[in-house]
Design a protein around this nucleic acid. Structure first.
Lengths: 167, 167
DNA sequence: CACTGATCGATGACGCGTCAACCAATCGTC
DNA sequence: GACGATTGGTTGACGCGTCATCGATCAGTG
């Protein structure tokens, strides 16, 4: 939802602004639409989806909470809250970890399994419909490269100063 | 935050998946980072920023609430809630509309003005640093075109069925 | 003028995400 | 093996976004 820049304030040049606005519009349209499809078709949010997919690809549909958190880049408190809500809806359950008494395993319930199995292909259809199918191979390639460059720039900024090359 | 697809479940082909994941990673990295910069540097969220920018570019720093909502694509209830919070922080204020007794004008306060004037150039720097400067002109052009295609596809799905071409 | 329907906006309830604080267990070091 | 630091995880408070509902006003029609 980051700010739609508006044309009259030229903090960015015309070209730069055009690209930035296109990008913002693209991802807002895309994410709101995909989330809407997910809710309408499968009654889960995109956050639920991320958790379910990751668990469904873990051995036994089961994984340590902290691993899950790392995999989907959520902080532990957000994860804990969300798991509580998903458990309440019967999608996942918590289990004790025998080898580390602090830890918890998160595992899919039968409901969780059937939910993700129904949701995944529908979601893939949506992704194809609004994204993959409307882009040329060249455009997709450009996005892959752009993604690498942007992620690298952001990670550079996030690295602590002493591990970062001078500039 | 829409779901990170994971490699082992091939609902999308390798190439498709690559592009989709690159896109998701790009916008999550970008939006969280930009929002963080905005909060750290200017003590406002990206939502605040969108409102402030739009008002600052309206005549007299003043605009009808519903126009504001349309411009930034917010539903009226979200807007109303957010304006309440921004008013509480002294960034904006509500004024009566003389020509339409239902309506409200939203206007920047002095604090709102100074906030956006400080925030905008810093935000532009961030956009340049993480996005504009790391992309080639060709990549930017590809993003502009991709954005148009995606937005068109989404809007097509959102148009009511009877205004939509058969397929 | 009266009626109907649409529009502008606010509100309450509720799920979500962040922050700060906390507890318990584990690891590293001496 | 004791002790401080780190790690895994939960909780409560609070701001945010969505939904449903509501009140008030306006516009169009007869």
């Amino acid at each position: 939802m980051t700010a739609t820049e508006l044309p009259t304030t030229q903090w960015l040049t015309g070209d730069e602004q055009l690209a930035w606005r296109a990008f913002v519009q693209m991802y807002t349209a895309l994410t709101t639409r995909l989330n809407r499809d997910l809710i309408d078709q499968s009654n889960i949010s995109d956050s639920d989806y991320a958790v379910l997919v990751h668990l469904s690809e873990s051995p036994g549909g089961r994984r340590r909470a902290f691993e899950l958190g790392r995999a989907i880049h959520w902080e532990k408190s957000r994860l804990s809250h969300h798991l509580t809500r998903m458990a309440r809806r019967g999608l996942i359950q918590r289990e004790d970890c025998l080898t580390d008494a602090r830890g918890a395993f998160i595992s899919l319930t039968a409901t969780g399994w059937s939910t993700i199995r129904l949701a995944a292909p529908r979601h893939a259809d949506s992704v194809r419909r609004y994204f993959v199918d409307v882009l040329s191979p060249a455009q997709r390639a450009a996005i892959v490269q752009a993604g690498e460059a942007v992620v690298a720039a952001v990670e550079l900024a996030e690295a602590p100063a002493d591990t970062r090359p001078l500039r």
